[in-house]
Design a protein around this nucleic acid. Sequence first.
DNA 1: TTGAATGCAAAGGATTTGCAGAGGC
DNA 2: GCCTCTGCAAATCCTTTGCATTCAA
Lengths: 171, 171
Amino acid sequence: MAAGTDKPVQLEPIEMARTAEQRFEDYLQSRGMRNTEQRKNLIKLVFSSHEHFDADQLMEKLPAKGDAGYVSRPTVYRALSEFVDAGLLRKFELDGRSVYEHDYGYPQHDHLYCSKCHSLIEFQDDRLKEIRKKVAEDHHFQDRSHRLIITGICQPCRQSRRRKRRPVDLI
Amino acid sequence: MAAGTDKPVQLEPIEMARTAEQRFEDYLQSRGMRNTEQRKNLIKLVFSSHEHFDADQLMEKLPAKGDAGYVSRPTVYRALSEFVDAGLLRKFELDGRSVYEHDYGYPQHDHLYCSKCHSLIEFQDDRLKEIRKKVAEDHHFQDRSHRLIITGICQPCRQSRRRKRRPVDLI
DNA sequence: TTGAATGCAAAGGATTTGCAGAGGC
DNA sequence: GCCTCTGCAAATCCTTTGCATTCAA
């Protein structure tokens, strides 16, 4: 995308007929599951920004134990799994932990991953679709999804080779 | 554990000036490290076939505890890490575990991953190189490696599903 | 009311680490 | 002999599970 820019290009959310919350409610409804306070808190938090995050980071954004709005760790894990199942989030693994990102209402993209500061930069390249299609056909493979991560050193880290840059929390 | 079975190799090894063992010896030498029996056993085993494997699968191929040639689990993990560092193996994550494959003497490739039987199928597409190059340039990113995994259902799994369809619940 | 969901504690599974003894070089 | 390496046990890290209680519908 836009060459000549320093900042990572931000992808634009897709226009949606239903909000993530609405879609999740449908999901719950259709399975006889309940729309609890915890699930409401989590989905609100998760969709309040489109950063990548892991379970730990999500926990840190929640109110502390004892305060209103607190959600326990097991419940966080259970909810993340439901969000993925409902098509709201996508999950992938990085350095041995699970990382989540918005799926619903967000365009397909892939990532550059800085092995120094652990930041993730999104990019889009439509040629990938073609490759995927051709390879799947060649192997009579029914493709459902793909994940491409290009690892290296991001621009800020290349420039400040000596300066210690605080790694972006979390991946 | 044990996932990621493999198909017979389809890609041809590259002609090498030095064997993996030789290269590893250089690596050890240059760092004042020792070429122990354990490391020799492991490298021989690892390069005796082209399959993808995880630490557990490698352990299972080793002689049992008490028998000659046994290597303990911590040593296996330490060695795998060294092999990666020495450029002999490449490591990636699948379903929460670390999976290894030959790097030295093996051409760049990517994978189709069957979510049903967990097999990994290798493929090559040179257009990926171009995409990687362009994206890296656009973002002033110094790319070092990439990993593309296309997930779906492999041909054998697609066929077996059609043949023996699960009957509708009777009762 | 009633079964699903939560929080707690504890378990699990993969991988790593501290350390005393073994063994390359 | 020096110093790295190994194996053992135990620790860590992330994630999941069993269960009694709480709560949405």
